[in-house]
Design a protein around this nucleic acid. Structure first.
Lengths: 219, 219
DNA sequence: CTAGTTAATTGTAAATTTCAAATAACATTT
DNA sequence: AAATGTTATTTGAAATTTACAATTAACTAG
């Protein structure tokens, strides 16, 4: 037992995705205390003793403090650890990523979100965390309903289409996309509800129970 | 800082998959010390201070102690934590899963491997870890070369086919399977090398660099 | 009532997947 | 040497899915 870790810091860090101007963005927080006081970083914090069921509790607390409510989609990402990642000592960071529809955020929060592909230099090992989060998001987007969690409860087919293109980072055929999504049954039309404008009204849809559930809960 | 965790136990636990009698099995270890002394459990141990880069170091150490060499495929699975999961106190377990070709193991190790679907009652939250590991393996098997890491360096198309069926848990069409796998370019024939027997010789293949790399390393 | 804009459908070609069956290449037995 | 058994590998046609291009639909604004 003598070579085991004594007093590691146990923390959570979160990558909070949202969409601004049709681009995939991250919500950062300015650090209130050293180290790296005043620097933009991923929102995070220490795990509390009473958060004894799961570190997702701590992640939710961190996210609520930042945006004021629970993210519609939250998933554990990866655990980083070691003596080098934090100057305060041997630490374990259990990281999470969350998807947050910009419609739920304050205007000011949305305005502060920064494009995932053009972030400022981040402290600690946060760049690695971001890289992994983007990788996971892209990967899951190709075979699940994940990107839909970046949209509000009701959305049009084209909005969904654009979100998928944005998160996957590639063009997707409109007709095929519509076909496949409807085929999978992960969304359903809201009867008689349309988004209106200077054009043909667009059918509104919502996620069904076949869509991926938050927290990767299965059944 | 007063509500943060003081002296958490930081450990790794591993789910070690192998194939015995064409069935997906796990290699368990009998616990040498309390709690649950003498009980079969997932191989695990405390993280050491000098394992300061990444807990994968600790996972590799645990695996080497159990089987004597490094697993060809190792990936971080999930991090479990809390006050309830271990009677010794608040703990963090960073879990890993590994794929180990039975050809590399001692006969006795293979004989002791137990079918993943019929394990004895496991201590701690090890049943949850196993469930997640199987889920991850099945999921990745559907879109990657993962199951190939359960086979030795050279294998026939049918061996690969059976491994995929076993890990996914469903029938796969032979012709389509062969087509898709070769299409993806994740394996290549070993020229002039065949597995012989009382039947037509079977072409031997090996993984190419297009196959999934261990440790989820990209590029 | 026409132009502009986005939504949604349609049709056809191309590609992929499925399914069933045939053929190939041995070792072993007769 | 020929027949048999066994597994490997290929083939071909049907069914399904996907890609691509174009058309039609439904509104608002001027």
């Amino acid at each position: 037992m003598e070579r085991t870790i004594r007093q590691p810091l146990v923390m959570v860090d979160t990558a909070l995705f949202t969409i601004r101007n049709e681009r995939l963005c991250l919500i950062l927080a300015r650090r209130q205390e050293p180290p790296f006081e005043g620097v933009l970083a991923l929102p995070g914090g220490f795990v509390h003793v009473e958060e004894d069921a799961d570190t997702a509790m701590a992640a939710r607390r961190v996210i609520r403090r930042k945006i004021g409510f629970d993210a519609p989609y939250l998933e554990q990402l990866f655990t980083f650890s070691g003596a080098a990642r934090d100057p305060r000592g041997w630490s374990v960071s259990i990281t999470y990523y969350a998807l947050i529809p910009s419609a739920l955020l304050d205007q000011s929060q949305v305005a502060e979100a920064l494009p995932a592909e053009a972030l400022p230099p981040l402290p600690f090992d946060h760049p690695q965390i971001v890289a992994r989060a983007i990788e996971r998001l892209r990967s899951k987007a190709t075979y699940s309903s994940l990107p839909a969690f970046l949209l509000p409860a009701a959305f049009t087919m084209n909005e969904l289409h654009r979100i998928y293109e944005q998160t996957i980072g590639a063009r997707l055929d409109k007709a095929s996309f519509r076909h496949k999504i409807l085929e999978q049954g992960i969304i359903e039309p809201l009867s008689e509800q349309f988004r209106v404008g200077a054009h043909r009204p667009a059918q509104l849809y919502r996620l069904t129970s076949k869509a991926l559930t938050p927290f990767e809960r299965k059944i």
